Simulated scan of single mutants.
Amino acid sequence: MTVQNIDKQVYQDKVKAQLDKFNAQIEELKAKASQAKADTAIEYNNKLEEIYSKRDAAQAKLEELQKAGEEAWEEVQNGFEKAWKELNTAFEGAVAKFK
């Protein structure tokens, strides 16, 4: 196994763990939304929809990353990093709004 293959696998494992953690945090927000009053619940649900969309985009980029050949790996990694940043920004915005 080449160093790049090892680096790619380590990176993929790290990203998968981050997505798993993020999914748990989304479930916490979802639980709060279900307990919120009607008007606040609508806001929660709107934010959750945005987060789900960005999470799905990050998941798709992770799948691309896993399938990427050696020559395309860095380009796909950059795409994933962008999707991950957008996901974090949306999530942090939702958490701040509902604290």
Rank of each mutant, 00 (worst) to 15 (best):
R55L: 14
I26C: 00
E70T: 03
K54S: 09
E50L: 14
E70D: 09
V15M: 05
A24W: 00
F98P: 04
E92A: 12
K8M: 10
Y44H: 04
I42A: 12
A72P: 07
A96I: 01
L65N: 05
A60L: 08
G93P: 06
A33Q: 06
K16Y: 11
Y52V: 14
I51E: 02
K37E: 12
A68N: 00
K21M: 00
L19T: 02
T40Q: 13
Y11Q: 07
A94L: 06
Q35W: 02
N45R: 10
S53Q: 13
E28P: 03
N46P: 14
Q9C: 05
I6M: 07
K67D: 12
A57R: 11
A31Q: 11
V15Y: 02
I42E: 13
E28R: 11
K85V: 11
E49P: 12
I42Y: 08
Y52C: 14
N46D: 15
G69L: 07
L62K: 07
G79H: 01
D39E: 13
Q25C: 00
N46T: 15
R55K: 15
Q77P: 00
G93R: 10
I42G: 05
A94N: 08
E71I: 10
T89L: 09
E71V: 10
A36F: 06
Q9V: 08
E75R: 03
A38C: 13
E64P: 09
A33S: 05
Q59G: 03
M1A: 13
K85Y: 12
F98A: 04
Q25M: 01
A72S: 08
W84E: 09
F80N: 01
V95K: 12
A31S: 11
Q77D: 01
K14N: 15
E71A: 11
A72G: 13
Y44G: 02
K8F: 03
K21N: 08
K97A: 10
V95I: 11
L65A: 09
